[in-house]
Each structure stands twice: as structure tokens, then as C-alpha cells.
Design a protein around this nucleic acid. Structure first.
Lengths: 229, 229
DNA sequence: TGTACATCAGTGAACGCGCGTTCACTGATGTAC
DNA sequence: TGTACATCAGTGAACGCGCGTTCACTGATGTAC
């Protein structure tokens, strides 16, 4: 906005905004760097002062989108009233929020997950994965999930919620309205949490999964800790 | 193969094969109709005698891939020994098979699901969804799943398994080896089935989901039944 | 306060490219008589 | 069994297109003295 437009000032963000809008309108892959530049009213080459390539733009957008999702999820959990006897409530809220989000802008969700594993420059904060993680810890603290069932539980919950979200976003499953989506998300979360709760003892040791996100964190820490003895 | 190559004879299938190989090599979107034709040793225009557009090729490929997945899933269930007391075993096998499949050729899986909802020409048989459905019916018959929990249970299981499969395929979660993948799949399936089993009574009514696949079947049936009074 | 100058963030033309699709064509195949 | 002919499944040249990226450039900004 305002005055001489030779220097845009906010071009980086403006390009990300334009790209996101294009993704909404035309799908995760159906747009070009040239189009995004044109929307912002800038020449295609201007983009290269802010992103090294189209791919870098995509990754940056993915990061921004995932961070927003993280905020949204932790917000959803935080807005839940005092759990009373229903300790699964906050996790239900998270699952619901995740699924709703994927359904609001399916193409954006697809892009975010598609580019998700490759970007390592920017820290995504709060990362959706961390939000889920913290919530499961709460559940253990409340005595509603056995300590033995806790390791890797986030991947089970994440898988279930993510699966519902992507099946809906990709149109492989349909539900009639938002209400139905919310309730289906609730069913999935409750089923999976109840199942995990039953694991308790005598269960086999489950494998150790790692998320691309925590992987990155770990690398960063070992890298810096080697410098601080 | 053999003799005068003016008439290929199997061009349609050959193009699908080439496209599938290209998807493996370069990702779900990183290939062109021209490339596929070139691999088969045919001019690009030849493809138009078998597919109305590149998009039609993609959909046909998706259908073929999904049908193969269906076969594989039902095969995996069928190979399980007599369940004994473990009635979840067959479903664990299905889930394992689904996840393994997605991990073997992630790009192909992505393409199959991405194009999945739009194709309505060819019936996919056996459809993965149907295989799952049948198996849950078995579970009810065996008395291991309440009749009240059965409706829509396939979507809960599908979501969980599909989520794990896509998170792994997209690199958002990593596991060390095939063994770990198998065990994680088992954990997810067992968790979700145990959760569903607990639903039994007094649970709220869950929404009615529809899959793009059954939707299509329904349409076909109403269409033909109107002609046979 | 005024001027010189480095740096930053744009421009716009050009590059080479491969794409999906169309078209008029032609060689091979199979069928009717 | 042999020939005429319709149909099928290829060819190859051409279309117009938009793409990502590069390059030498230039106008605006901010800092040092």
C-alpha cells in the first residue's frame, strides 16, 4: 500500500499470500511463480530477490501454513472448558480442528503436507506434532493413559486424524455437513485413544517412530551442543 | 512384441505401464504424456487413440493401481491362518499390507489417491474399501464387534491405516525398517479396533459417511433399477 | 544540513524448453463377396 | 482363394503456450562524513 511502488517492502509476504490464494483457486500444483508475481504486480524476476527458486517459495509457504495449523490446534485445545471426567475432550478438539482445517482449504493442506518433509531452514512453531505430543503427556499426567502406552502414541493419534483429514480433503470419503465432520473426527479420536488406553500392560514393545519435525530439532540440538561443552 | 511395429496391439496397456514407471522415477506429477509415448516408442499423438487426454490416462492408471491394491489386500487377509482367539488378525494383515504398499511406491500411491475421487468410468474391483468392509462384517459375525458399532466402522479403520500410510509415504514420519512399519501398522489397527469394540452401547449415533466408491455403485444401481420394475 | 556513494530491490527482455493437443496423412488389418 | 475396400491404429509436423530462470540494468533508500 501507498506511494512509489518501486520498492514494495512486503514483497516476500505478498508473494506467499498470492501463492496461497492461487493454490486455493487452482490446486496445489496448478499455478506458477510468474502468476504469483503478476498478482502482486511485480515482474517475475523480482521474486528471485526473496526466494532462490519456485521450490523455495513452495517450502516457505508450506512452513507458514503448518505453523498456522499449529497455532490453531493449540488454540482449540486451550479453549476447551475444564475437562471434568472427560479427559479426551481436549484431544477431540484438536482432532476436530485438524480435520476442519484440511477441509476448509484442501489444496493448501495438500501442499503443506506434500512439501512438509523437505524444508529444514525455518523452524515451524508451534509445530502441529508438538501440540499433539503435549496433549498426550497431559493425558498420562491425568492417569488416563498408561506410561507404557505413551511412547509413540502421538503417531497413532496423528495417523488416525490425518487419515480422516486427507480422505475427506481428497474426496474419497464424503460427509454431509460440518456437524457430521466434527462428529466423525470425534469418533476417530475417541476410538484411537480408547484403544491406546487398553494397551496398558503385556503389550509388545512398539517400534520407535520419528517425525520429520522432531528429527530436525534433534539434529539442530546435537549440532549446537557440540559447541557448548 | 515382435514383427512389424506399425500396429502395437497393446499400446493402451503399454502406455499405462510406461506412465507408472515414470511416476515411480519422477513423482506423481513429474512426467508427461509425451515422455510416456516416447518410452513405448510411439509418437505422442498415438496416445490419443486410446485416451481422450492426459488426464484420462492418469485416471485409468489410478484405477488400475487401486484395483491391484484391492487384490493385494484381500489376498493378505486370505493368507492369514485360522484366527484362533485373535480375531483382529486378518484386519491387521490388511492394514499392514496397505501401509507396505504405500511405502513401496509412494509416488504411485499419491497419484492413485489424488485422482481417486474423480474417475467414474471404470469399476475398480475389488475395491480396497470393499475388502475392508467385508472384513469388519466378519468381525461382527464373530461377535467381536458390536452391531451398534459396525456402521461406519470401516471409515474409522480406513482413516487410521490411510493416515499412517500417507504420513510414511510423504516422509512426515519415518521408521527404521519394514519390520518396524509392520508393527506400527499393527499397533494402529489394534488400537482402533479395540476402541471401536469399546463403543458398544450408550454411544452417540455417529454420522453416516460415504466413500466415493460406494457412492458410485449406488448411482449405478439406482440408474439400472429404474429400468427393471 | 548537504552531498557522495554503496546497497538494495526492483525492471524488462531474452533464453531455451517441453508441454498437450490437432491435423491431414498412411500403412496394416480384417471382412465381404 | 483372391480381390476391393472400410476401418483401425499408427505417423510426423505443426500450433500456440506458459514456464523457470538469467542478465544487465536502474531507480530508491539509507548511511558516512
Amino acid at each position: 500500500m501507498a506511494k512509489g511502488n518501486y520498492h514494495h517492502g512486503e514483497l516476500r509476504n505478498a508473494l506467499l499470500d498470492a501463492a496461497e490464494t492461487l493454490v486455493c483457486e487452482r490446486g496445489a500444483e496448478g499455478w506458477s511463480l510468474r502468476e504469483a508475481s503478476a498478482r502482486v504486480g511485480v515482474s517475475p524476476s523480482a521474486a528471485y530477490h526473496h526466494f532462490t527458486s519456485r521450490d523455495a517459495l513452495v517450502h516457505a509457504l508450506s512452513g507458514r501454513v503448518l505453523a498456522r495449523l499449529g497455532e490453531r490446534l493449540s488454540g482449540a485445545a486451550g479453549q476447551q472448558p475444564d475437562p471434568g471426567s472427560d479427559h479426551q475432550q481436549r484431544l477431540v478438539a484438536i482432532g476436530r480442528s485438524y480435520v476442519r482445517w484440511a477441509l476448509e482449504e484442501p489444496a493448501v493442506a495438500r501442499l503443506a503436507f506434500g512439501a512438509g518433509a523437505t524444508d529444514s531452514e525455518t523452524a515451524i512453531s508451534p509445530h502441529p506434532h508438538d501440540v499433539l505430543d503435549a496433549e498426550l503427556d497431559r493425558l498420562v499426567d491425568a492417569g488416563c493413559l498408561a506410561v507404557s502406552a505413551r511412547p509413540g502414541a502421538e503417531f497413532v493419534v496423528w495417523a488416525a486424524v490425518h487419515g480422516l483429514a486427507t480422505l475427506l480433503a481428497d474426496g474419497l470419503i464424503s460427509l454431509d455437513d460440518t456437524k457430521a465432520v466434527d462428529r466423525e473426527a470425534e469418533r476417530v479420536v475417541r476410538a484411537v485413544l480408547s484403544g491406546l488406553t487398553q494397551e496398558t500392560e503385556a503389550s509388545p514393545k512398539w517400534p520407535t517412530a520419528r517425525s520429520a519435525h522432531t528429527e530436525r530439532l534433534a539434529k539442530r540440538q546435537t549440532g549446537s551442543s557440540s559447541g557448548t561443552p
